[in-house]
Design a binder for these strands. Structure first.
Lengths: 339, 339
DNA sequence: AAACTTTGAGCAATGGTTTTCTTGCCGGTA
DNA sequence: TACCGGCAAGAAAACCATTGCTCAAAGTTT
């Protein structure tokens, strides 16, 4: 029997193995490793050496069972882990990882049945908390079936105002863009947006309209151009606006894809950006904003920050400091060449 | 004392609570719920009713501790959960979710220290297995420090051929594109690619070159145009090729961004796509491929399938059926309007 | 030298579930 | 009536780490 033979064949090394090798009881071994109990330095060293030799790692399962905490949070996303939820997710993971908390990923693909199923799984696994995130900024119904598990909604706030939510300051973002255009001397500003029933489109449109009004200006073309979030719509809208209001000198687009479509059309129509017409996008989606000609000035929602703050609020809630309500995160204008 | 008072205030309902309410022992309650033991139907019903009343859910932690399995796998990604790893991840999650397995997400951001840290975390949590995925298709060094945890490398194969890897059939993808162009009558085919040191660029270039040779053709412009993966490079390369070889009638681009840059330039130069010049991309990245004018014919790597197969191999390995080596997943040509 | 303090280390309970082993009871057969 | 088979249900061990408590020995004080 060599020493390695005492290692259990399939399973991992357990504290009992360490204690046996060091010639002490499990209790003593535990205290030696955690540094909690008092003991002769010599004993401690023997345990530490044994743990090192066996490459011991405490079983989180057992620890969690005892502590009643799993140091795990569930991250429920509804949009297939897309462009919006990914940065939120990473921001959250960053903040949580610092506190030794792991993230259990659940993608519901927008399906209520799956969502329900995932919530039950997370509950069965006794997660310490849940973060819910989605593609749209429209409020969403609160997660059904969770009992007293702390939950934070990121990006898509909960419809229940008592829940904790972290949202983007849509109106602030629109303000950044519009004021940038006004202060740089633009006077005939068009606004091209996505579907009129999206909250994001509504907020940005309302604020743009209001700010122009306060500056004594009107929307170029006389109205907000609602459509969809695509480049193709941006191209179509740009042509429409140029025909209806040829003196337009700026476009504020409610996302970068629309903005890119607009710049493409402007270039094809022989208008120089930004000399003749300025263009501002929204989202700061690098593949769009940087590949556009010229690179887009655009509003960044600080999605990472939204995720980070959601995680911090969740950590607070887990520690019992629950403060309900929506908290908004400010946007940031990234100035490039298009405006 | 009403009945609800016996429910522990902060914690969840436990099997003991159910057993007490039903007037049986925990052991019996467990058997009733799992359907394993034999008992009077009346007793079973009483337990089931109690569980229903208390909304009991077994604690996965405790179950895992006993079974020595956690029904959890770690998903280690190196590229910030980007465009490539996301579909792989979803494919894997889909296959795993069917088997009641949850996914623990670890994003290393390409940092070796973080990677090491995550591996230790996953080991401490006793995950049943690990899937490693990354952005590049180049082989990567195997994960350090894991003992006997089954591991599958998806998209980025391991440098160790004994490890289990699932990779994309890069050469097959290039073959699909090139043969499509040749059979549709193109004779002067240019190949615009990414950095020459990327495995993906090399594989695609070599196969394109070889196939053209077999058909008695040569690369238009006489060589492969290596650059980077950007639209800007696609635009530049297209101009270079048109100048050097004006009779070029097709472009095979090693990703969709390059292809989009190429089509943009071709349109600006007055060449019609696909009438005058055909363009094929790679990746089938919808926001690029669909927004291009015309929409791109492109090679789809079936990333979902890669994730799915990686998950299935991992499940096999967890059950002891480990088969090392690289398995490649075939690509698929998505024909749209550009070729 | 006796009583007391300090210290080192083990014991056992804890957490929630599963599973094996055991006990007790009933009916049936010799 | 005695014995055995079968079945229902309980008791207890197992999983693994943590921690308060206990006990014993060494060391200190009067």
């Amino acid at each position: 029997m060599t020493e390695t033979d005492r290692r259990p064949p399939p399973g991992r090394v357990t504290l009992t193995d360490v204690a046996t090798l060091a010639g002490v009881s499990v209790g003593t071994a535990s205290k030696a490793l955690s540094g909690n109990g008092r003991m002769r330095p010599e004993t401690r060293d023997r345990v530490l050496e044994a743990a090192r030799r066996l490459d011991f790692q405490p079983n989180e399962q057992a620890r969690a069972l005892l502590a009643g905490r799993t140091w795990t949070v569930g991250l429920v996303t509804t949009d297939g882990i897309g462009r919006f939820s990914t940065p939120v997710l990473l921001g959250a993971e960053d903040a949580l990882g610092a506190g030794k908390i792991s993230v259990l990923l659940c993608d519901t693909r927008g399906d209520a049945i799956r969502e329900r199923h995932y919530v039950e799984t997370l509950l069965a696994r006794r997660v310490d908390g849940i973060i819910v995130t989605g593609r749209r900024t429209d409020p969403r119904p609160p997660l059904a079936g969770l009992r007293d598990v702390p939950t934070v909604y990121a990006l898509s706030p909960s419809e229940d105002p008592a829940d904790m939510s972290v949202a983007s300051d849509d109106e602030g973002g629109a303000r950044l863009a519009t004021e940038h255009l006004i202060t740089s001397g633009r006077r005939h500003i068009a606004h091209v947006s996505g579907p009129a029933h999206h909250a994001a489109a509504q907020h940005r449109a309302r604020l743009t309209h209001d700010l122009l009004g306060q500056a004594g200006l009107e929307l170029s073309g006389g109205k907000v151009h609602f459509g969809d979030w695509s480049e193709a719509w941006g191209r179509r809208a740009a042509r429409t606006v140029l025909r209806a209001a040829p003196d337009t000198d700026a476009f504020f687009c409610a996302n970068d894809q629309i903005a890119r479509g607009v710049t493409d059309t402007l270039r094809e129509e022989g208008r120089r950006v930004p000399d003749d017409i300025a263009v501002i996008g929204y989202d700061n989606w690098d593949v769009m904003a940087l590949a556009a000609r010229p690179p887009l000035t655009t509003v960044d929602m600080n999605l990472n920050e939204i995720g980070r703050i959601a995680a911090l609020r969740l950590l607070d809630a887990i520690d019992g400091r629950t403060v309900g309500g929506v908290r908004t995160v400010a946007c940031r204008l990234v100035v490039r060449e298009s405006a």
